[in-house]
Every structure is written in C-alpha cells, then in structure tokens.
Write a protein that binds this DNA or RNA. Sequence first.
DNA 1: CTGAAAGCGCTTACAG
DNA 2: CTGAAAGCGCTTACAG
Lengths: 333, 333
Amino acid sequence: MKDVAKAAGVSPTTVSHALNGKGVVRQETADRIAQVAARIGYRPSPIAQGLQSSRLGLLALVIRPLRSLDTFLPEGVDYFLRMAGAASLAAMERGYSMMLVDDPTRPGAPMSATAADAYIVSEPFENDPVLTMLSERHIPFVSVGSDPARPGRFVELATRDWEETVLALDHLAGAGAERVALLTGTDQNAWNRESEAAYRDWCARRGQEPDIAAFPEADGERIGPAAIERFFGSPDATRPDGLFCLTGRHAAGLNAAARERGIRVPEDLLLAAGSGALQNRISHPSVTTLDLHPEGIAARAVEVAVQLAEGAELTVPLEVPRATLDIRESTTR
Amino acid sequence: MKDVAKAAGVSPTTVSHALNGKGVVRQETADRIAQVAARIGYRPSPIAQGLQSSRLGLLALVIRPLRSLDTFLPEGVDYFLRMAGAASLAAMERGYSMMLVDDPTRPGAPMSATAADAYIVSEPFENDPVLTMLSERHIPFVSVGSDPARPGRFVELATRDWEETVLALDHLAGAGAERVALLTGTDQNAWNRESEAAYRDWCARRGQEPDIAAFPEADGERIGPAAIERFFGSPDATRPDGLFCLTGRHAAGLNAAARERGIRVPEDLLLAAGSGALQNRISHPSVTTLDLHPEGIAARAVEVAVQLAEGAELTVPLEVPRATLDIRESTTR
DNA sequence: CTGAAAGCGCTTACAG
DNA sequence: CTGAAAGCGCTTACAG
C-alpha cells in the first residue's frame, strides 16, 4: 500500500480511503489510485484489514461425529453433507465464508482453526474439549445439541431428540408393531442419550420391556448381519416386530441383512430410522425415516453464529426446526 | 498480551516466547505466564499472528459449477460432495483448514473470501473471473480442469476428459451399441467442451454421424422425459441404441424416463454416465458410470495448493488420477 | 479534500 | 534468560 501511495503521489491514508470508498476523496484522485494499484498489482491483505476489527467474516463448522465415521464426509450420511452444504450457503448469503474444521484443539491445528469469528459445533461429545476451549477463549459459538455433561451451559440449539423418538415409535406402533426395539449408536452425544431415554420412557408407558442394542456409527451398513443376529438370534417370543434405528446407514444395513435372512420388511418387521440417507429412499423396500431437515438446522445455526459474531442480540429461536416423518414401504403394511 | 505481560511482571516478548515455545525462557517463568494467561482468559489473535507471515494456514475451495446447480450441495452430485469432503480432510492432514467459498469476486464477498493462502478452483468457466482476480492479485491457485479460453496459462491439474470419453464410448460400442449419442451439459467448461470434441472425433473415426443434445446441469433428473423425447421422438432409423450421458443425474433421469416410455435398458438402449451419483448405483437397472475419483483429485489439488502456499517447488504430477469404469446393468446385455 | 500519527495484536531480530 | 524497539499491512480519528 505504501508503494501505491508513493507511486500515486498520495498518502497511504488516501489510498485506503480511495480503495475502500471511505472518507472523502476526489473522484480523479480515486481513479488515479485505482489505476496505479492495478498497474503495480497491489493486493490488499485481508489479514491486516481484519486486524482492526479482529474479524475476518469467517464462520467455522465443526462436525464432531465425523471423527467417528470411517471417511470424512462419507457418502450416504445425508445429514452431515446436507448440513455442511446448507451451512456454507447460508454463510455466504450473510456475507461470511464457511470453514470446515476438524478439531481446533488438536496440537497441530493450523492458525486458521481458531480464526473464525464464530463456531458452530454439531453434536458435541460429553465434556467436549472443543466447547471447553472455545468457551475459555471467549470465542463465540453455538452448539447443535447440547454437551450431555453440560446441558444449557452454553449457547445451544436445542434438538428435539425426545419428541422425534416418540414420533417414530408411535408411528411404528400405529403401523402395527407390538414389540419395538431400539438400535442406537455408541457415540457419547445427546442424540444417542436422549433418544434412548425417550425410548425407555415410551416402553415404560406402554408396559413393554425395552430391547436395546448399540453399534458403532463408524460401522455403517456393515452392522447389518450382526444386528439381525442380535435381535433375531433368540427364540421367537422375544423377537421384535418393530425396530427404530437411529442412523440411516444402520437401517440400510439392517434392511439388507433382514432380507437375506428371510425376514420380511414390513410384513415381519416394521423398520424406521431416525435420520435419513439416500439409500433409505431408494432401497427395496424403501425405509421410513425422520427428516431432521439439516438445511433448516444449518440455516438457524448460521443465523445464531452471525449474531454472536456481531455481538448482536440473539433473536433466533434456540431450537432446531421440527422433524418430519417420511413414511415409506418399511412401515406400510 | 500486554495485560498478561503486566500481570506476570514480564515483557510482551517473553509472553510471546513462553506461549509459543520459541526463544529461551526459564521454565518457571513460562509456567507462571501460562497460569496468568489462563487466569486472565487470554485469547491469542490468530489474525495478528498471521500478519507477519501473511499466512493463515487456510486453503479455499471454489467449486464453480455449484452456481449452476439448483442447490448448493445438491444430493446425488456425488462428485462435488466427495471432492469437498476429501479436500477438507486432505487439508487437515497437512495442517490447513479448508474453506468453501462461493465466488470471491462477488461485490459483497467477505474479507475471508480472499484470505486463503492458496485456492483450488474446480472446473473454471470460460474466461473465469475468479482465475483472473486470483492471478491479478498474485494469490496462488490451482485449477482443476483448465479455463477453456486460457488453457495452460495457469497452474492447473489436467483432467482426462478426452480419454475418459473414449473409454466410455468404446465400452458402449463393445457392449453392442451401433449408434451412440451424447447427452452433455450447458456449462461453458472444459469438461463439456473436451468431451464433446472427443465424441465428435470418435464418431468421425467410426464413420458415424454425431448425435448430440445439451441440457442444463441445473435441471438434473428432471431432463429425463425431454431428453427421451429428443432422442426417441424421431423415426426408428435415427434412434440411438447407446447413450453417453455426461452427468450422473441426467443419466438417472433418463434411465427412469426410458423405463416409463417402454424403452428397455440395456436391451434397447445401452446407457453410461460420465460421472457417478449414488442413484446410478442403486437404480433399476443400475447405470454404468465413470468413477472420476474425486477424492484422488482433491488430494492432489490440495497437495499442489499447499506447495504453492508455501512457495515450494511443485513436485506433484499436474494431472488428475485416471478414471475407472464402473460397469453395471445398463451396459450388460 | 488530504495527510501525519497512532494503533490493531502480535513476532522477531537484536542488545543487554 | 529477558526486554526495548521495530515492524507486519492496514484503518481511523483527527488536524489541517
């Protein structure tokens, strides 16, 4: 910038004013400066510009369960892909860029990992160090779903795990299931916790014995055979005729494994999933899933993040949009 | 930092040294400083830190065709999702964050949109203003596929559009197609251009009349009926019995529309796509697609971007990995 | 309408 | 082992 000023025969102040349209600069001067800047190949430093406000116009999305999954953005995990995409778009629309960050607390993390104006942390783990770090450094953030060990302690978008579970379970019962089992994940997050609690409560109210198995999220479809064995390896009397499977990929694996085992969906087993993957929509039979509307969640989270970044009053409802049930063949007898 | 220095009774220099493990600081002093910093809630500014090096450890991915598509990260466009995910992971592994940027040349673009150390621009348009801007500002970037109007002008990862097209066309012919038509997109990028040129050349060598239709990428599966009408609305003699469809979503729409029209795939029509979507894998019949290995492309692009950002010698082969053909029911008679 | 000066929050030779 | 000083590349009151 000094070079431009020198070459144009003005002060850096004037260059700054001219190039940013601030202050008052005569049109001719401004034009001349623009010309010189272009000729010299002047490249403003966004970092230096950001130094004053200590803001970069950057948001970060930390999707915690990603580390549990086998690939970073695994195909078929509609939820996170749609969330990341929608979050990026929503950020752009509000004049921010969106950064995908792995884990800013990791030792080798790049400078940029902590450079965002605000963070969105999706599905934090129990006592999540990412939340701890952000909070210690007074970096604004919103979590989607609470830290199970510290609910309500930070700004969070409340999820509707409980009501969503009941929605799915009631649907299964309404479709004719008498004994509904639960297939959950092993991640220590609010979704798994709350859903299980809601399921237990639902069973208690119906006077049914809970039947729960947990398989690692990371194993995806591969859990199919093992899960079938777990639920259908025992004598007929205790077998479920309905199954609520939290993740779409687990449901897809189970759906395929059931078929191979000669268990007919939906005739013998009513199957519903708590989150959808494309697979569930186009499998045979197709699988009923909750649509959590990750785009809506992302949009809301971005809105909150922007307000936090700008130190504005929070005017956004701090809860995720209501999920809907996409009823498909697996629960239609 | 000044506050920490004051509170610890040392100079800012020492604080800096202690906190970053540079220079030489007595262990006790360092410990004391760390304590004070923690107590005060000191939060280092990555922006100020980056000011010296003018580097943030930030890479940016600009996926140009995204603007043509109906949603930002549309489901079923495996290619870009896999690319974005893999690029993020690859960046993390090399100590960088990855930012998804819409269009840094847009007037309202945030500061951060130009703050990356290096850019990856996927499938630039003709005379792409993004490339122009980056090049004018001397910001390092690598493009995946060349700007059709300026091939070889910038650092670019050469794509293999020509050989991939021939691979698919030869496969169709080998599977029994006598008259192969081409269904391309309307975006002005190298992929569409080169593929069409390769197709024309291939036809010329076989003495076949080219039969080409272009539909907007943005219309996705919806082009099905119109595309079928275009190719099969005319008298039998000129109808194709093989079709190479550049995008997976177009192929999925066409596949479904053919079925409705009573055109049997693969019996009446051999169908292959130039890029895959999950739909193509699990549709009935499943559709043969090229797998462009977006993960491999992303990994290589990130490698180049990192070397550019660090001013290192480019040691990466400047071409994308070879595509493979996933042969499925649509070309298996 | 333009510019000198201070400052944003750090790092880094260099001197002690 | 520690600190004073200059500087990274800008912006922003403020004075003229």
